[in-house]
Structure formats: structure tokens, C-alpha cells
């Protein structure tokens, strides 16, 4: 599996990361290097093997339906570049 420059641009767009034309060939090479490294795993026959979700046998922890969190507007908004009346403000996202 490998990616071309169009795919690099698409991935960047979907993640909303600004990538300049000059950066694209470099990123293409980097991503393809990672993909070929991971591809080594393809040599292992995993037919009939359940995907491992945890190294030690563990069950998904569940919590009780109790309100234990929230009411921390100032903490939640602390890192927001822009906020007003306890709303986050972002550049307008509707056409």
C-alpha cells in the first residue's frame, strides 16, 4: 500500500492541516516509508486469529449513571483563543 500526492493533499484537507505544495513530496515519502515499515506485519498469517484488544485480560470498566463532573466553564474555556458569554468562538463555519 502506498499513497500518491493527491492522497496526501486529501488527508491534510480532511484533518484541516495546511500543507504547502513544497511540503507534499516530502510528506508523500514519509508516509510511504511508514506504510512500508508497517507492511512487514503482512508476512504474519493471522487467519482465524481474534484481534487482540488488550495485552492483559481486562473487561471494559463501566460507571454508574451519576453526575460527577461539569460546571467548570472557566477550565473548559481556559485555552480557547476566543470566547464570549461562555461560548467558544470560531470563524463562521456556515455558507
Amino acid at each position: 500500500m502506498s499513497v500518491d500526492q493527491a492522497t496526501v493533499r486529501r488527508i491534510a484537507y480532511l484533518a484541516r492541516i495546511a500543507v504547502t505544495d513544497e511540503e507534499v513530496p516530502h510528506l508523500e515519502g514519509e508516509i510511504n516509508a511508514i506504510l512500508s515499515f508497517v507492511e512487514a506485519l503482512g508476512a504474519v498469517d493471522v487467519a482465524g486469529v481474534e484481534p487482540m484488544t488488550s495485552v492483559i485480560p481486562m473487561k471494559l470498566p463501566l460507571r454508574a449513571d451519576v453526575v460527577t463532573d461539569g460546571e467548570i466553564e472557566s477550565l473548559v474555556l481556559a485555552n480557547a483563543p476566543l470566547a464570549e458569554d461562555d461560548f467558544f468562538l470560531v470563524p463562521k463555519v456556515i455558507e
Binding site: 476566543l82 464570549e84 458569554d85 461560548f87 467558544f88 468562538l89 470560531v90 470563524p91 463562521k92 463555519v93 456556515i94
Partner: peptide, 13 residues
Amino acid sequence: SLHDQSPTMSFVD
């Protein structure tokens, strides 16, 4: 998201 609070910004709750 509220889009009608400002001409240039969206408000997020």
C-alpha cells in the same frame, strides 16, 4: 453551533 450571533463568528456550546 450558533451561527446567527455574529456576522463573522460561530458560537459553540
